[in-house]
Design a protein around this nucleic acid. Structure first.
Lengths: 200, 200
DNA sequence: GTCTATATATCGATAGAC
DNA sequence: GTCTATCGATATATAGAC
C-alpha cells in the first residue's frame, strides 16, 4: 500500500479509537511507519489528513445502512439492521466525532458526519414507511420521528455500554426498542380470537 | 466564592463544553481568574481537578432524574422526564465523558459516570415497573431493557442533534419514543367499542 | 493560600538536502 | 516522495519567595 493510503487508514483507526483532538501527527507516524517528511508531503496539516480519514470512515459506514433498503419484509429488514453485530465498546466511528469540540466547531470536518447521518435517516424513513404500508406498524406513528428514535437508540446504546464497560446496556437498548416496535403493530380486530395465519 | 470552589465550577463547565483532554490547566486559570500557584495548591494535577469537577457534574444531574420517582401516574412521570426541556446542542455533561479516551481508560474518572448511569437506570426501571402494574404498559415488555432504551434515546438524541447542529433530531427521537410507549399500552378488550373512562 | 519564575515534554509544523 | 534537523507554541507541571 502506498504511503498516502496507509496514512488515511491509520488516521481512520486512530480517530475511531481516540478521536481527533487526542490523536497527534506523531501517533499517526508511529503506527503507520510513514516518515515525517512523507506525511507532510501528502497532507500539509493534521486537519487535511483528518478530512480524508473522516470521509473514509463515513464510506465504511454507509454500505451497512443500505441493508435497510434491501428487498423482503420491511420489519425483517428493520430487525436485521438493528440487531446486526456491532462492537458496542468501540462505539460508532462517525457518531463519535460529534463529541470532539475541534470537529464540531469546524464546519468542514462536521459536514461528512452530517451527510452520513442524513443518508442513514433517509433510509430508515423509507423502510419505516414500507412497514406501515405493509401493516407491520401502526399508521399513526411518524416514520420521520421513529427514524431518529432508532438511530438514537444505537448511538446512545454505545454511550451506555462504554460507561459501564459492558456491551449489555447496548444490547438491552436495542432489544427494548425492538420489543416496542413489535408492540406497536396495528391491533388485530379481535385480540382474544385465534391468531390469523401471517403467511397465507 | 473561594478559589477551590471556583476552580471546580470552572472545570465542570469546561468539561461539559470541551471534554477533559481538550481542556488545559491554562484554560481553567484564564476562565476562573485563579492564579497558577493557587490552582496547584488545591489540585496537584489536572486529573485531581477533573475528578472533583466530574463529581459535581454527576451531582447536578441526579436531582433531575429523581423526577422519575415522584408520586402520581407513572406514565405521566415518564413523559415529564423524557420531555423535560434540555439543551440538545450542549449534550449530556455526564454521557459526554464516555467519548474521551483519557476518561474512559481511567477507571477512577469513569467511575462517577458509571455510578450516575446505574442510578438513573434504577429509577427508570422502577417507574417502568409501576407503569406495567398500573396497566399503562404491556406486561410482556422488559423494564430493564426499556430503561436502557429510553436512556439511549436521550444520549443518542444529543449525538444526532450535534451532528446536524439542530435540536430537531433530539426532539424527534424522544417524540418517537413516547409515541412507541403509548402504542405499547395493553390492548383494550374490544378496540372497536367506545373507549372506557380512564379516570372513573 | 497566592505569586512569579522556570522546567521538561509534546504538538503541529517548516526547512532544506537527497 | 522521503529523510533529518529544527522551530515556536502549548501542556503540565515544579520551585521557592511572600
Amino acid at each position: 500500500m502506498d504511503s498516502r493510503q496507509l496514512l488515511i487508514d491509520t488516521m481512520s483507526q486512530l480517530m475511531w479509537e481516540r478521536g481527533y483532538a487526542d490523536t497527534s501527527p506523531r501517533d499517526v507516524r508511529e503506527r503507520s511507519g510513514v516518515g515525517q517528511g512523507s506525511m507532510y508531503h501528502h497532507f500539509p496539516t493534521k486537519r487535511d489528513l483528518a478530512l480524508a480519514a473522516l470521509e473514509r470512515n463515513v464510506a465504511d459506514l454507509l454500505p451497512a445502512a443500505s441493508e435497510l433498503d434491501g428487498p423482503g419484509d420491511p420489519m425483517a429488514r428493520i430487525e436485521a439492521y438493528l440487531m446486526r453485530p456491532r462492537d458496542a465498546l468501540k462505539g460508532c466511528k462517525v457518531g463519535r466525532m460529534t463529541q470532539d469540540p475541534q470537529v464540531r466547531e469546524d464546519p468542514a470536518l462536521l459536514a461528512p458526519v452530517q451527510r452520513a447521518f442524513a443518508q442513514v435517516h433517509t433510509r430508515w424513513v423509507r423502510v419505516l414507511r414500507e412497514a406501515v404500508a405493509a401493516g407491520g406498524l401502526r399508521a399513526d406513528l411518524d416514520p420521520e420521528h421513529l427514524a431518529h428514535t432508532l438511530m438514537a437508540v444505537l448511538q446512545g446504546g454505545y454511550v451506555l455500554a462504554i460507561a459501564q464497560q459492558d456491551p449489555g446496556p447496548f444490547d438491552d437498548a436495542r432489544a427494548g426498542a425492538l420489543s416496542l416496535l413489535r408492540a406497536a403493530a396495528p391491533s388485530t380486530p379481535h385480540p382474544t380470537t385465534t391468531r390469523r395465519n401471517r403467511t397465507p
